[in-house]
């Protein structure tokens, strides 16, 4: 039995007999008091999302999950192929597991996959990923000079994001995968 300090995104918790993967967690210390861990977790069976608040230090039934670094190779129909960087074995992950985050995939990027009894239960992308700008419309005369105007650019993996007007084709930029936003030039 582990405790709340072992709660991370992607760990699997046995809660009231069912298995849940942690999607999000947050520490709260109300009024300088004891710390609590607010956890949002998704049932591995039904996919239902629940919220549970644990007191810090409380015993939590965290089941063994292996976290393995894998490199993205290519899309294969409705699945995505990765290579296990330890064993060099290939593994296909279901599109459902990646959800909307699949749009950040780009050949060669490394992700951390959580495996529970051989089954992939979570995928963590790097927080910032570097892309090359494939298409960027030139800045148009008359664009606001406020410095806040953005334009849509297309990245080398096909992802479209808003970037400042001064970003040009061929530049390398960093994208924050948590917010989906432009971060800075690489």
């Amino acid at each position: 039995m582990l405790s709340t300090s072992d709660i991370r995104k992607g760990v699997v918790i046995r809660h009231q007999g069912d298995l849940y993967v942690v999607v999000e967690f947050q520490h709260v210390n109300p009024g300088k008091g004891a710390a609590f861990t607010r956890t949002r977790m998704k049932s591995l069976g039904s996919g239902k999302v629940i919220e549970v608040t644990y007191k810090s230090g409380e015993a939590v039934d965290i089941v063994e999950v292996q976290f393995i670094t894998m490199q993205y190779l290519y899309q294969s129909g409705p699945a995505y192929a990765f290579m296990n960087m330890q064993s060099y074995e290939q593994l296909e992950l279901d599109a459902g597991l990646l959800g909307d985050e699949a749009k950040y995939l780009k050949e060669g990027i490394e992700v951390v996959v959580g495996l529970y009894e051989g089954r992939a239960v979570s995928v963590a992308l790097p927080k910032k990923v570097k892309y090359t700008v494939a298409e960027a419309p030139p800045a148009v005369k008359g664009d606001s000079a406020s410095g806040n105007v953005t334009k849509e650019v297309v990245l080398d993996n096909g992802l479209k994001i808003q970037a400042p007007i001064f970003i040009k084709e061929g530049e390398e930029i960093l994208v924050n995968t948590e917010t989906g936003e432009y971060s800075a030039r690489a």
């Binding site: 109300p30 008091g33 004891a34 609590f36 608040t53 007191k55």
Partner: peptide
């Protein structure tokens, strides 16, 4: 709510407060 012997008054208070009120 799970209440253990080690939980002080304020621990129990905040478990409920953080869940239902805050």
């Amino acid at each position: 709510y799970a209440v253990t012997a080690g939980d002080a008054y304020e621990d129990i208070f905040f478990k409920i407060f953080l869940d239902k009120i805050e």
